[in-house]
Design a protein around this nucleic acid. Structure first.
Lengths: 336, 336
DNA sequence: CTGAAAGCGCTTACAG
DNA sequence: CTGAAAGCGCTTACAG
């Protein structure tokens, strides 16, 4: 293994100064086409590539974006990760990923590492991130955008779906379908998504004078949702509809209803989820849900982040996107 | 936004030399506890953190691992990604992720970027990677390990399941269940996994004097598998068993069999997949499959990579792991 | 144990 | 357009 070639090596071979080599690899720098050609030839011969770390040190930009994400078992996140990677790459940025342990705070460690590596920005896609931690980043001059969550802090950018309205629409849909005994197996109530969906759903019911027949905080854990389904739906006075905090929970609940309790969906129990992950469209589930427009969430996230990185004036922004109801086969058709 | 504090800032505040600050943050360096205390106090006051980029430049190690991955819609990869991230973090490495476009070669671009950022090693989890590209990395002194694929090049490390044996076991299982008209909806035949599974499956049948009733190269694309299922299983002389190149394909095929063609699984058609992703254990599919031991694949990958990075003597290694048959409900029980 | 100094591989004013 | 030089924020011999 030979040592990697440096700009000085190339300069020597090309018979030019090291500055000339650097300029050749700096878009917009002034080099004559003759010099450029000599440099390029020597560079090719030595398989030279500029050291991005050294460059970052000088220009004060790493073009690295830190991504903190968890719950890869929830298909929403792998899908979003792929979109995010592509969107950022188009803009010339790359992703340093950190998998947060589920529901646990992304430990301070992760943030330290992100800061150490001089990331230009951070996308927080993990459920719980204390205000304190995000503020540390902003204090260090690193813009943060909360993805699929928000916090009451005007300094923190965030991009979310209108979870409140989406959940309310599901409540309306249940009621229109004739349901009156309605349960909510909620997402984690310490996460804004979990909370907003619960709030919106309750409000939708309240508009028709209804209250929840059953409420469980599953913490977004399918195993907890299954346990709850066994308890709640084996009672004679069981609910006839259940809204789950996300699609992944809904799949788990449907499995219990159908394969453990022998109930039919939607005839015995209607089920709805949230996210509209690809699996929801699979005929085995064919789930009624509220869609999160992952592509648009990602686009807004990248727009905000890049703006804050590249334009000194850009301030934090919070975006709320539409979250349309997607009616499929797990709920009764609404008469009329 | 204030400029980030540097070691010189800390030195000034602490009344020591810049070297002393550096030593305080270098494990194993010799600093008196007095000096260390002064430095730590000043560092805390300034929220100082060593610049990992500058450090990398000097020590010649970035502690960055490049990961090229695709097919995040195949649950095997998100699961593996999570494990890989954890395993590498434990060893003090971090992941720079690149999503390769499905089945397309990871463009040279990606590799260039990886080299630019001075990654210490690369995990190739994307199906197609030309020998040429991998060799470029090795030539640049960056160890590569192929994850879930291999190539006939002793210089390239690889970690795979014994796909040949796993697929053969499925063939044996089908035959033992009394099947004779057997199809294979194969994974991409340009990928070693796709090829080995097809080869092993054919060999398993051949041992009993059987040949494939139908063979389709789906390129690991569920849409292609569905199309094929519609064509192959609507014929009167349809096969009574099908082995799919991975679990994700099997789900797609089962959906067509059950919900479009009205066939029962396994009574009318037995189905098997490969990978044993979490969804396979969901009762809606309850899929017979060959398990890839993701945790062990990841562990071996990290072991090889870290060894090559940290020990000059360590050469490339190829590991093949056991891939046990997991019999569930999509195949007929074997009599006796 | 400690500090002054060299140097990692670059970019970028500065002069010419 | 071009080169010599300073400097980004660190680590690490080297002397003391």
């Amino acid at each position: 293994m030979t040592r990697k070639a440096t700009s000085s090596d190339v300069a020597k071979l090309a018979g030019v100064s090291q500055s000339a080599v650097s300029r050749t690899f700096t878009p917009g720098a002034s080099v004559s086409s003759k010099t450029r050609a000599k440099v390029l030839k020597a560079a090719a011969a030595l398989a030279y590539r500029p050291n991005a770390l050294a460059r970052s040190l000088i220009v004060g930009r790493s073009r690295l974006i830190g991504l903190i994400v968890a719950h890869l078992d929830n298909q929403f996140y792998p899908v979003a990760l792929e979109m995010l990677s592509n969107a950022l790459r188009t803009r010339g940025y790359h992703i340093l990923v950190f998998l947060a342990t589920s529901n646990g705070d992304p430990v301070d460690d992760v943030l330290d590492t992100l800061i150490d590596y001089q990331v230009d920005g951070i996308v927080m896609g993990s459920a719980s991130i204390s205000t304190r931690l995000a503020q540390r980043c902003e204090a260090a001059g690193i813009p943060v955008v909360l993805f699929n969550r928000y916090q009451d802090d005007a300094k923190l950018s965030s991009v979310v779906s209108d979870n409140h309205a989406g959940a309310r629409a599901i409540a309306e849909h249940f009621v229109a379908g004739g349901h009156r005994r309605i349960a909510h197996f909620a997402g984690w109530q310490n996460a804004s998504t979990g909370r907003d969906r619960a709030l919106g759903f309750r409000e939708g019911l309240a508009r028709h004078g209804l209250e929840l027949a059953s409420f469980v905080d599953t913490e977004f854990r399918p195993s907890v949702a299954k346990e709850a389904a066994r308890a709640v739906f084996s009672r004679p006075d069981r609910p006839d509809a259940v809204f789950c905090g996300n699609d992944t929970l809904a799949f788990a609940v449907m499995d219990v209803l159908r394969y453990e309790l022998g109930l039919r969906v939607p005839e015995d129990v209607a089920v709805a989820g949230y996210d509209d992950v690809p699996i929801s469209a699979w005929p085995a589930y064919n789930l009624t849900t509220a869609r999160q427009q992952a592509d648009r969430l990602v686009k807004e996230t990248v727009d905000i982040l890049v703006a804050r990185i590249e334009h000194a004036g850009a301030g934090p922004r919070s975006v709320v996107l539409d979250s349309p109801l997607v009616v499929r086969g797990t709920t009764r058709p609404v008469p009329g």
